[in-house]
Design a protein around this nucleic acid. Structure first.
Lengths: 202, 202
DNA sequence: GTCTATACGGTGATAGAC
DNA sequence: GTCTATCACCGTATAGAC
């Protein structure tokens, strides 16, 4: 039992690394087995198929990335600026620790958009919660539904894109200097908040 | 000769569609052959291998996406606001016609960052041109190099992200209403310019 | 140039011993 | 639970006829 738990965890750890690096179609069961220190047969013993294993990782990844937004934004204890600062900071920091996550999610989601609703439900991000955000947030901001959407899209765009576009941006703007790019991301946390706040006030 | 040209074009058209939809590892030579109305053997006759064929498409795609930025931004005939408006409008419109391009580029580039320099050179986007943009643009804007980078990253993020994040954004903010999302993108062209200009003036 | 046939390696998945 | 061995299939790539 203890050993089983360990093996399953090791498989999931390995699968996470490989799938996020290579995607569903690029990943090989052999590679996952190697990274987990076991053989292919055992993979199929724990998770019936590659697709099943992948779905577990995809759900887990979504659960890690998405719930923070609504929880934070709706918290009435904080001013909106505080909520926003906390969100942007937490979000960018989280991605810094998992820099390949956004590209992975983007790719797999665009590859298979039908899975979205299903995955969202699994992580407790159902219609009710979505509605809640769509209704409470405009009230908090004192903005129309449309304006609120613009702010949200802007914030998420600014937080996420630098990571998925990193190879290109680094080449074009940062002379491939990794340190400079990291520093830029760090400084960006404050700038994103400023840009969003100026959208709200104007 | 005429027929050969036709076949090659048909192969490239098919390869473009399939690769951009499925990516390198997800695409199948059989599927490309089917879409081109020929058989697998002929694919290998024209392009020795899958990788070679893919490289052609990748270069072609980069050539289509990237050169517009520097050419526009540096044009001294226009005010910066005019350049920016033209760029944002042209860029978003272009992506609207090829909505899967950004996710494709992001995925393949993150999968194989080493190819970037090589691909950029192929499309005439060499070190000299990059330096030119890095030097001329700050002058035009009257901003520091760092501030200029912020503006560029912001503009590109706001233009591109909505497309790659479309499935998620549509679900969370637009109740899966395609029309509403399209309208949002259309209206966004003007908003992006406003956001960028306000960054410059402050 | 274009086809059919086939080689050849890899890939997901299973059977069966321990 | 974990392994070795093996299967059936699919994928890229090539040979060779026309």
């Amino acid at each position: 039992m203890v050993k089983a738990q360990d093996t399953e965890t090791q498989i999931l750890d390995a699968a996470r690394r490989v799938f996020i690096r290579k995607g569903l179609s690029g990943a090989r069961m052999q590679e996952i087995a190697d990274e987990a220190g076991i053989n292919k047969a055992l993979l199929h013993y724990y998770f019936r198929s590659k697709e099943k294993l992948f779905d577990v990782i995809l759900r887990e990844t979504f659960a890690k990335i998405f719930p923070s937004l609504p929880d934070l934004m709706i918290n009435p204890q904080l001013t909106f600026r505080e909520s926003l600062t906390k969100f942007v900071d937490g979000y960018i920091t989280a991605i810094q620790h998992n820099p390949f996550l956004p590209a992975f999610v983007i790719n797999e989601i665009n590859q298979n958009p039908d899975k979205i609703a299903q995955v969202f439900e699994t992580i407790g991000f159902d219609g009710a919660k979505i509605k809640q955000v769509q209704e409470v947030l405009p009230q908090r901001l004192g903005l129309s539904k449309e304006k609120t959407r613009e702010v949200i899209v802007t914030v998420i765009s600014l937080c996420v894109f630098p990571f998925v576009g990193k190879p290109v941006l680094k080449t074009l703007l940062f002379d491939n200097d990794d340190k400079a790019f990291e520093a830029f991301l760090e400084e960006r946390k404050a700038r994103v908040v400023e840009i969003a706040m100026s959208m709200i006030q104007s």
